[in-house]
Design a protein around this nucleic acid. Sequence first.
DNA 1: CTGACTGCAAACGTTTTGCACGGTA
DNA 2: TACCGTGCAAAACGTTTGCAGTCAG
Lengths: 133, 133
Amino acid sequence: MKHINLLKEHHLKVTPQRLVIVNSLYEEGHITIDRLYTILKNNFTNISLATIYKNIHLMEVNNLIQEVKIPNHKSVYEIVKEEHSHIVCTNCSNIIDITLNTDELKQQVKLVSNFHINHSCIVFDGLCHDCVA
Amino acid sequence: MKHINLLKEHHLKVTPQRLVIVNSLYEEGHITIDRLYTILKNNFTNISLATIYKNIHLMEVNNLIQEVKIPNHKSVYEIVKEEHSHIVCTNCSNIIDITLNTDELKQQVKLVSNFHINHSCIVFDGLCHDCVA
DNA sequence: CTGACTGCAAACGTTTTGCACGGTA
DNA sequence: TACCGTGCAAAACGTTTGCAGTCAG
């Protein structure tokens, strides 16, 4: 099974449950707790939601994954990687990553506010190619 | 009390509780359920959280207010107005509105995705002027 | 071998629901 | 007056905690 090193690099013990969680995150890109529970039940008959929540929390704290809050949707989790934005299809709920240049935007922010900005969180919604038809 | 027309325009009956809710939204800009409960308790000794949730839900459905989801924070509600972005201070949790020109950003999105975009939701975090010191 | 992880059950906080009463239009 | 809104209590959710047994390192 892949992704063993990802767990080790983030100082997490390698367990079968964690490997399936990380693998699911890679395969699906963005995943809800519910979806994770469904997947884990297929692999471990006695899987507990508590185990999922505990692991999600640990992985967040260790910066392996992060929560993405999306308007009018349940939160999803994703593997931490370089900063990027999200587009959500309001019809089929599909979520994709996009990399944008936000320099110009941050420049605007600097002009109109006196905040010292750290991160930006940008989510678009609309219709994906399939759902436009 | 002001804001009676705002309720009427959104097809909501005018009640004392609703007037205080709308008034609080105007005065504070962004407000959590908890904060609303604290305020309403000062005005109505027997106010129920159920009343607050029911009204918040109704006002959302009638497009008078909207939820703003903020990374690592409780959701806040605000009066619906022209599209704008938010900056949150990671130290004092203060939230301010900013109006940005997102044309260039949406142009980028158009180039790298085949979505038909509707809305954008942009939240920055950082330190406000007071907290930098 | 030791500490960490799992599964279970219970607890917890938040949000929703049903109902009887009271108020708005 | 008729319907809608309120407050209360209970229920429904989602998430967290404590514990005993098991497993990874």
